[in-house]
Design a protein around this nucleic acid. Structure first.
Lengths: 199, 199
DNA sequence: TTATAACTTGAATGACCATTCAAAAACAGA
DNA sequence: TCTGTTTTTGAATGGTCATTCAAGTTATAA
């Protein structure tokens, strides 16, 4: 009986991520969203409820993709610390590749900074996501410690936060349009921070 | 002959900094600016030209204040590395103090992330300011190296970038509303990164 | 006191904002 | 083919955006 939607929800969200990531929350108008998703306002509102609803769903999907990416990356490594070091290096390298991502900075951090003090819903969601990411780093580091990769005095929760702040700093500073080799060097220097924690 | 302005330009800019720092560029409407500066649109436009003009001037003044703060802080230290380590620790501590600053994140970084891809003027100004800050770190580290505080293989330009990214990460992650002790611990961990570069 | 120049005011501007909704179109089952 | 339900469309909504400007106000110098 019912007519089925013409759009593909997944591809709509993927386009929304690109737009929001590139231009931010306030920088993305409904007009631009309509064009990016190739949907008219009625369909967008029927599907996602509001601009905020779409943004929240896009942000959550972006975070989930990032989580999968981390898990897939780590699967290639026997040593967790080696894996995390290369993870940092890879971020720096990927920031040098133009046209791959809509922005070098992290969408979650962009959201956190843009929404703080003015949009509680977005800010809380960004905070919750970052907390979950920190937790997944902490679990990895806990595991690394159990395996004897890390010094006994290493606190996985503290190192997890240090690691997260490295990534936030790296991807934020990448918006400065530094020469490629400087960004890659910075990724290397950040990776080497972890050496101080090795057993 | 001429009537003199009723407002105080410096205090107007200081109020503008507070508002922009708290709410961001898009989050601060002209109506809010009028209220914060206690000025009517005509006066604001006659004085600063436009919202962008006001924002740029506020941003520049904010950066200048930050630069003075760094210089004053470093004046208290014989050892540059000690000074920089305490600088990081102090940032973390000041992020735990509520009601002091309008936001824990850095206004320059907020500007950089909010304006990238949508507002070339703001983005370029933020980039130029961050470059100047990096340079002042580099000069300090160059001096530290000459004094023998740092390992001979230390590259001041690379360490300056690493330092700047630490501050960006620290102040950004502070927007997550972490418990005070966790933020202070992170500041300490960041300070200790510098130990690896000591001679 | 008067003339003059600068500053302040606040209503008006047109553009753009997110959102709504009635009508048209399209599909699935009978 | 017809019916019923859902989706799509796009014009319309009311609000807010940054900005302008003519008129009113105020201080200074003559």
């Amino acid at each position: 009986m019912p007519r089925r939607p013409a759009y593909d929800r997944e591809s709509a969200l993927s386009r929304a991520i690109s737009l929001f990531w590139e231009k931010g929350y306030h920088g993305s108008s409904m007009k631009q969203i309509e064009e990016a998703l190739d949907m008219r306002p009625g369909s967008i509102y029927a599907t996602f409820g509001s601009k905020d609803g779409l943004y929240l769903e896009a942000l959550t999907r972006y975070a989930a993709a990032g989580g999968s990416e981390l898990a897939e990356h780590m699967a290639d490594y026997d040593s967790i610390v080696d894996g995390l070091q290369d993870y940092l290096r890879n971020i720096a390298v990927s920031c040098t590749q133009k046209g791959v991502a809509p922005s070098r900075a992290c969408l979650i951090v962009k959201t956190l900074l843009e929404s703080s003090n003015i949009h509680a819903g977005l800010s809380e969601q960004a905070q919750a996501i970052l907390k979950a990411i920190e937790q997944s780093f902490e679990e990895l580091l806990e595991q690394a410690k159990e395996r004897g990769e890390l010094k006994e005095r290493t606190k996985p929760d503290r190192l997890a936060r240090l690691l997260q702040s490295q990534i936030m700093g790296l991807r934020s500073i990448a918006e400065r349009n530094l020469p490629d080799e400087e960004l890659v060097g910075l990724g290397e220097d950040m990776a080497q921070i972890l050496d101080a924690y090795r057993a």
